[in-house]
Amino acid sequence: MAKYSNYLFKLDLLILSVLKHKDMYGYELSKVISEQTNGYVVPKHGTMYPVIYKLIEDGYITSHTIVVKNKARVYYHLEDEGKEYLQQLVEDYDNLVLQINNIVHGGENNDSK
Rank of each mutant, 00 (worst) to 15 (best):
Y60A: 00
I56R: 10
Y76K: 01
H105V: 08
L98Y: 06
V18T: 11
V97P: 05
I66S: 11
Y7K: 11
K83C: 06
G39Y: 01
N6M: 13
G106S: 15
K54R: 15
V90N: 11
Y76P: 05
S30H: 05
N6S: 14
A2F: 04
K113E: 10
N109E: 06
L86G: 03
V32C: 09
H77G: 08
M24L: 08
N109T: 06
Y75I: 05
Y4S: 11
V68Q: 11
D12H: 06
V74A: 02
Y76D: 02
D111A: 08
D58K: 12
A72D: 15
V74I: 08
N109P: 05
S63N: 09
Y60R: 09
V67H: 02
Q87E: 13
N95A: 12
I56C: 03
E84F: 06
N38F: 04
L55P: 01
N101H: 07
K71Y: 00
D23S: 06
E84D: 10
M24D: 03
M48D: 04
E108D: 04
Y4E: 11
Y40A: 14
K83I: 08
G46Y: 03
Y27I: 13
M48C: 02
V67I: 06
Y53Q: 13
Q87I: 02
K83E: 15
L96F: 13
I100G: 09
N95F: 11
Y4W: 04
L55R: 02
Y60G: 04
G106Q: 15
Y93M: 08
Y40Q: 12
S34I: 01
S30Y: 09
L8S: 10
Q99W: 07
I52G: 03
V51S: 02
E84R: 06
L29Y: 07
V90D: 03
G107A: 11
N95Y: 08
Y25C: 14
V18F: 02
